[in-house]
Amino acid sequence: MKKLASPRIPTQRTKIGSSKNLPYLLIVPICILSFTLVLYPIVQGIWISLTDKTLGAEIGKKVNFVGLDNYAGLAHNSAFLASVRITTLYALINVVASVGAGLITALLVNRKFRGRGGVRALLTAPWAFPDIASVIIFIWILNSAFGIIGVVSQYLPFDTSGGWLTSSPYAFISIIGMSMWKTFPFYSIVILSALQGVPEDLLEAATVDGAGPIQRFKSVTLPSIKPTMYLLGLLAFIFAFRQFSMIYLTTGGGPERDTETLVVSVYNTAFKYYDYAVSSAIGVAGLAITFAASLGFLILQNRTARRDKR
């Protein structure tokens, strides 16, 4: 990962003005979109979270500024706290299980064998498959009367008679299963491509020195795929954190509010409970988490990059 120390082209006057201004002109379109459709809505959301606005309130009702009351309320709001817990758990399991399963798959597929190209292509399929289509399939498969998993699971020693998507803890297990199906095959091909960069002579040297497969993995393979693993960890976190339709359209956040992650909670609070201001406050809390996570990732990435350079 080299950093460009100097501009690639020596500065000089051109027909369209000096290159000093050109980069700023180039990013104008992106900035306009980002300001109007991302940053401005965030500011709006923060503003609403400081008021007592409700959705569908009678026209002319005055919206009052209430300061940080909504946030103070969140601290005692058991549904919100539960939602934070559910989101954290969901994200953590996604990061550990999906990236872990991806790593194991990649290590096993990382040999020449017949049909390898086909397997690799197959592994992209779930990632590319649209959410709504996945939702339709899983609702069908998990249907307790006719779905194949729903029917087969009746012979298993746990009581799934409440339905995979409608009883706890199966609803949570189901959304984990769906997101794993979607993500781990893709992570495995990303790791697979990183494995191509593992220096082969080092592996051979380690073998000559008598290192076993686990030792080789720990001291040669893992260090060289570390950046990719970090990246996938972040990707899995983002995926879990922003996942809306695959939860909202299967469990709707239920049963009770047992699968209500933060993004689903924002939506339900606004459109089911009509509490616009609290919904915005939850949204802003989520934004803060997102921001902290991206900052944390950047710092982590910079630190490892600097260490590697030394």
Partner: peptide, 8 residues
């Protein structure tokens, strides 16, 4: 996550 700012 788009869901956080879809309402604004």
């Amino acid at each position: 996550p788009e869901a956080l700012i879809v309402i604004p």
